[in-house]
Amino acid sequence: MNESSNGKGFSVSLFVNNKPGVLVRIAQTFARRGYNIDSLVVSNAHDARFSRITVVFQGDHENVDQILRQLNKLIDVVHAIQHGSETSVDREMALFKVGVKPEKRTEVFQIIDVFRAKTVDITDESIIIETTGSSSKIDALERMLSSVGLLEMVRSGKLMMARGLEPT
Protein backbone atom coordinates (compact mmCIF):
# COMPACT_ATOMS: atom_id res chain seq x y z
CA MET A 1 0.00 0.00 0.00
CA ASN A 2 2.80 2.39 0.88
CA GLU A 3 5.00 1.38 -2.02
CA SER A 4 4.16 2.63 -5.44
CA SER A 5 3.39 0.11 -8.16
CA ASN A 6 6.87 0.05 -9.63
CA GLY A 7 8.48 -0.47 -6.25
CA LYS A 8 10.80 2.44 -6.94
CA GLY A 9 9.70 4.83 -4.22
CA PHE A 10 6.70 6.76 -3.03
CA SER A 11 4.07 8.49 -5.13
CA VAL A 12 2.25 11.58 -3.93
CA SER A 13 -0.34 13.54 -5.78
CA LEU A 14 -0.90 17.18 -4.96
CA PHE A 15 -3.76 19.52 -5.74
CA VAL A 16 -2.39 23.05 -5.51
CA ASN A 17 -3.09 26.69 -6.30
CA ASN A 18 -2.03 27.49 -9.85
CA LYS A 19 0.31 30.41 -9.28
CA PRO A 20 4.00 31.28 -9.45
CA GLY A 21 6.21 30.00 -6.66
CA VAL A 22 4.10 27.01 -5.62
CA LEU A 23 6.40 24.48 -7.25
CA VAL A 24 9.44 26.03 -5.56
CA ARG A 25 7.85 25.66 -2.13
CA ILE A 26 7.07 22.02 -2.84
CA ALA A 27 10.54 21.31 -4.20
CA GLN A 28 12.05 22.98 -1.12
CA THR A 29 10.01 20.77 1.18
CA PHE A 30 11.64 17.72 -0.40
CA ALA A 31 15.13 19.19 -0.73
CA ARG A 32 15.31 20.47 2.85
CA ARG A 33 14.85 16.94 4.14
CA GLY A 34 17.20 15.40 1.64
CA TYR A 35 14.68 13.60 -0.54
CA ASN A 36 15.55 13.22 -4.19
CA ILE A 37 12.66 13.61 -6.62
CA ASP A 38 12.59 10.84 -9.24
CA SER A 39 9.81 12.26 -11.34
CA LEU A 40 7.59 15.29 -11.30
CA VAL A 41 4.57 16.04 -13.45
CA VAL A 42 2.79 19.39 -13.31
CA SER A 43 -0.22 20.51 -15.32
CA ASN A 44 -3.39 22.54 -15.00
CA ALA A 45 -6.34 20.91 -13.31
CA HIS A 46 -9.72 21.00 -15.06
CA ASP A 47 -10.40 24.11 -12.98
CA ALA A 48 -7.53 26.34 -14.16
CA ARG A 49 -7.21 28.05 -10.77
CA PHE A 50 -5.55 24.83 -9.61
CA SER A 51 -2.75 22.53 -10.75
CA ARG A 52 -2.13 18.82 -10.40
CA ILE A 53 1.29 17.61 -9.41
CA THR A 54 2.47 14.01 -9.20
CA VAL A 55 5.77 13.43 -7.41
CA VAL A 56 7.67 10.16 -7.19
CA PHE A 57 10.50 10.21 -4.68
CA GLN A 58 12.87 8.03 -2.68
CA GLY A 59 12.77 8.17 1.09
CA ASP A 60 12.48 6.37 4.38
CA HIS A 61 9.19 4.67 5.08
CA GLU A 62 8.75 6.32 8.48
CA ASN A 63 9.36 9.80 7.12
CA VAL A 64 6.78 9.71 4.35
CA ASP A 65 3.96 10.72 6.70
CA GLN A 66 6.08 13.64 7.82
CA ILE A 67 6.63 14.78 4.22
CA LEU A 68 2.88 14.55 3.60
CA ARG A 69 2.19 16.66 6.68
CA GLN A 70 4.77 19.24 5.67
CA LEU A 71 3.30 19.37 2.14
CA ASN A 72 -0.22 19.75 3.47
CA LYS A 73 1.02 22.54 5.74
CA LEU A 74 1.97 24.67 2.73
CA ILE A 75 -0.70 27.33 2.29
CA ASP A 76 -0.89 26.79 -1.48
CA VAL A 77 -1.35 23.02 -1.21
CA VAL A 78 -5.05 22.14 -1.12
CA HIS A 79 -4.20 18.52 -0.51
CA ALA A 80 -1.33 16.08 -0.77
CA ILE A 81 -2.23 12.37 -0.85
CA GLN A 82 -0.08 9.30 -1.09
CA HIS A 83 -1.38 6.69 -3.51
CA GLY A 84 -0.50 3.04 -3.97
CA SER A 85 -1.24 0.73 -6.87
CA GLU A 86 -4.45 -0.66 -5.31
CA THR A 87 -6.01 2.75 -4.89
CA SER A 88 -4.90 4.44 -8.09
CA VAL A 89 -4.10 3.92 -11.74
CA ASP A 90 -0.86 5.28 -13.07
CA ARG A 91 0.62 5.81 -16.49
CA GLU A 92 3.82 7.03 -17.92
CA MET A 93 4.89 7.83 -21.44
CA ALA A 94 8.38 7.49 -22.85
CA LEU A 95 10.33 8.13 -26.04
CA PHE A 96 13.38 6.02 -26.85
CA LYS A 97 15.97 6.77 -29.50
CA VAL A 98 17.76 3.65 -30.66
CA GLY A 99 20.82 3.78 -32.90
CA VAL A 100 20.29 0.96 -35.39
CA LYS A 101 21.37 0.26 -38.99
CA PRO A 102 18.72 -0.99 -41.46
CA GLU A 103 20.05 -4.59 -41.35
CA LYS A 104 19.50 -4.82 -37.56
CA ARG A 105 16.02 -3.24 -37.49
CA THR A 106 14.10 -6.51 -37.33
CA GLU A 107 15.32 -7.27 -33.85
CA VAL A 108 14.18 -3.85 -32.64
CA PHE A 109 10.81 -4.18 -34.37
CA GLN A 110 10.22 -7.46 -32.54
CA ILE A 111 10.77 -5.75 -29.20
CA ILE A 112 8.44 -2.89 -30.23
CA ASP A 113 5.81 -5.41 -31.20
CA VAL A 114 5.96 -7.36 -27.94
CA PHE A 115 5.62 -4.16 -25.90
CA ARG A 116 2.91 -2.77 -28.18
CA ALA A 117 5.02 0.35 -28.61
CA LYS A 118 5.05 2.58 -31.70
CA THR A 119 7.71 3.74 -34.12
CA VAL A 120 7.37 7.51 -34.54
CA ASP A 121 10.57 8.40 -36.41
CA ILE A 122 12.96 6.41 -38.49
CA THR A 123 16.23 7.27 -40.29
CA ASP A 124 19.07 5.21 -41.77
CA GLU A 125 20.74 5.18 -38.40
CA SER A 126 18.04 5.58 -35.78
CA ILE A 127 14.51 4.85 -34.67
CA ILE A 128 12.38 6.75 -32.16
CA ILE A 129 9.94 4.58 -30.25
CA GLU A 130 6.95 5.80 -28.29
CA THR A 131 5.28 3.86 -25.52
CA THR A 132 2.72 4.36 -22.78
CA GLY A 133 2.07 2.21 -19.76
CA SER A 134 2.95 1.56 -16.18
CA SER A 135 6.36 2.69 -15.01
CA SER A 136 7.43 -0.94 -14.67
CA LYS A 137 6.56 -1.67 -18.30
CA ILE A 138 8.68 1.28 -19.40
CA ASP A 139 11.51 0.07 -17.18
CA ALA A 140 11.30 -3.33 -18.88
CA LEU A 141 11.32 -1.81 -22.37
CA GLU A 142 14.33 0.28 -21.40
CA ARG A 143 16.20 -2.85 -20.35
CA MET A 144 15.40 -4.62 -23.64
CA LEU A 145 16.41 -1.64 -25.79
CA SER A 146 19.65 -1.14 -23.88
CA SER A 147 21.02 -4.27 -25.49
CA VAL A 148 20.26 -3.11 -29.04
CA GLY A 149 21.77 0.39 -28.95
CA LEU A 150 19.65 2.73 -26.82
CA LEU A 151 20.94 6.31 -27.32
CA GLU A 152 18.46 8.48 -25.44
CA MET A 153 15.39 8.09 -23.29
CA VAL A 154 12.89 10.79 -22.29
CA ARG A 155 10.16 9.85 -19.81
CA SER A 156 7.14 11.94 -18.94
CA GLY A 157 7.15 11.05 -15.28
CA LYS A 158 4.29 9.27 -13.63
CA LEU A 159 0.68 10.41 -14.02
CA MET A 160 -1.69 9.15 -11.39
CA MET A 161 -5.40 9.17 -10.70
CA ALA A 162 -7.24 7.73 -7.72
CA ARG A 163 -9.68 4.91 -8.47
CA GLY A 164 -13.43 5.28 -7.99
CA LEU A 165 -14.76 8.48 -6.48
CA GLU A 166 -11.75 9.07 -4.24
CA PRO A 167 -10.06 12.42 -4.95
CA THR A 168 -6.66 12.28 -6.59
Partner: peptide, 8 residues
Protein backbone atom coordinates in the same frame (compact mmCIF):
# COMPACT_ATOMS: atom_id res chain seq x y z
CA UNK B 1 -2.43 23.45 16.38
CA UNK B 2 0.05 22.39 13.69
CA UNK B 3 -0.47 18.72 12.74
CA UNK B 4 2.92 18.68 11.00
CA UNK B 5 4.49 18.58 14.48
CA UNK B 6 3.01 15.16 15.21
CA UNK B 7 5.66 12.52 14.72
CA UNK B 8 8.27 15.03 13.57
Amino acid sequence: VDPAEFGK
